[in-house]
């Protein structure tokens, strides 16, 4: 039974697919760097030129950094395209993780609004319940005891001991 060619070609095509994906992936930070550099150059025109007695105006440093960032972005794009990207791939995100992340960020934004209208102790307990539930906590210990105790500790530390106006 001759099975060796098939796995080899499978491995090769999988490697090739990974390299292509890595190439595209590496373009993202490169393009982000270039975009940030260009934006900085555009925004730096609004910086006042400063006193004539100074050889280097306040724009000089951010402009130099912006050009450097654009240059590095281009170098990174070219290098990663030519060499086939990097072997280091980040741990893949999960679909459930992405949903959890959006839900948690929404809860944090909601907390910002709630804290404005409701007492810190109440709003923070609600946030703890929401975060724990979204992250997978269930049962009275996770959803009642833990939020109440942790909020009390936070309030004692920051509100009472450190006298932060919460």
């Amino acid at each position: 039974m001759s099975t060796s060619p098939a796995p080899t070609s499978e491995v090769t095509s999988a490697q090739e697919a990974a390299r292509t994906s890595s190439r595209w992936r590496e373009l993202v930070p490169a393009l982000a760097g270039v975009a940030l550099g260009v934006t900085t150059l555009a925004l730096s025109t609004q910086i006042p030129d400063g006193a004539a007695s100074v050889r280097f105006s306040p724009r000089w440093w951010p402009d130099a950094l912006a050009f450097l960032l654009i240059g590095l972005g281009v170098v990174h794009a070219v290098l990663s395209w030519v060499t086939g990207g990097t072997d280091e791939a980040p741990e893949p995100a999960t679909r459930a993780g992405a949903i959890r992340l959006v839900a948690i960020l929404s809860a944090i934004v909601g907390y910002g609004v709630l804290w404005y209208f409701v007492d810190f102790r109440v709003s923070t307990t609600v946030l703890f319940v929401a975060l724990t539930y979204i992250a997978g906590g269930r049962g009275w210990k996770a959803l009642l005891l833990f939020p109440v105790v942790t909020t009390m500790v936070l309030y004692l530390l920051f509100g009472v001991l450190l006298r932060v106006p919460l």
Partner: peptide, 18 residues
């Protein structure tokens, strides 16, 4: 991990505010 995540997120926010 849900206990840890919740504690870190809220401590980060309150600590930064403080």
């Amino acid at each position: 991990p849900h206990f840890l995540w919740a504690v870190i997120l809220v401590f980060c926010m309150v600590g930064t505010y403080a």
